[in-house]
């Protein structure tokens, strides 16, 4: 499948869900989609197109939270990034980890660092932060402030 065919097929299949498509360069395409369609589109890319899931990156951009799901189609060297915007106050999105193992860890990571809820995640435990980290404090949010009064920011020694 060549690049043009793939993109045409992709846009015609999901035209109702695609809000905007940015053809940034030969190897990068950013697709803005509705949050409800992420499971369908993600599954399609992973299972039918045979794309490899790179990773997902979430960014806090008040008043929204943005998640980018990066998929790479290796045969034609094309990186497709699916972009969804969530409400910052109540960020919720359907989990892809139910069907694809590769999403498991990254969704856990995003949920603790940015406070995003993944609905239906099979294993929503903590991944990175320690057990005594307070609930609801998300270090990668823009308004994160140090909560630990014992922390020492001098050089020691």
């Amino acid at each position: 499948m060549i690049r043009q065919e793939l993109l045409l097929d992709f846009t015609s299949r999901f035209h109702a869900d695609i809000l905007d498509l940015e053809d940034k360069s030969n190897t990068r395409v950013y697709v803005n989609i509705t949050p409800e369609s992420i499971v369908r589109i993600g599954n399609y890319l992973f299972r039918n197109v045979g794309a490899r899931f790179n990773i997902a990156t979430a960014t806090d951009m008040p008043p929204k939270i943005e998640i980018l799901y990066h998929f790479i189609v290796e045969d034609i060297n094309l990186l497709i990034s699916l972009r969804v915007f969530l409400d910052r106050e109540k960020p919720e999105i359907e989990s892809l980890a139910k069907e694809i193992e590769a999403f498991n860890w990254i969704e856990r990571e995003m949920s603790e660092l940015l406070g995003i809820t993944f609905i239906g995640h099979p294993d929503p435990r903590r991944l990175l932060l320690s057990d005594n980290w307070p609930e609801g404090v998300c270090p990668l949010r823009q308004d994160y402030e140090e909560w630990d009064i014992t922390a020492d920011r001098t050089r020691g020694v």
């Binding site: 790179n54 990773i55 960014t59 980018l68 990066h70 590769a102 860890w105 990254i106």
Partner: peptide
């Protein structure tokens, strides 16, 4: 394996978001 970095810039001299994905993150599971 593949190391993956994502950088978002807002025009200042600091990255606004920098995501690091080391290969073992995918290999471990």
């Amino acid at each position: 394996g593949e190391t993956f970095h994502y950088v978002k810039s807002d025009g200042t001299n600091r990255p606004m978001r920098h995501k690091v994905r080391a290969p073992t993150f995918m290999n471990f599971p």
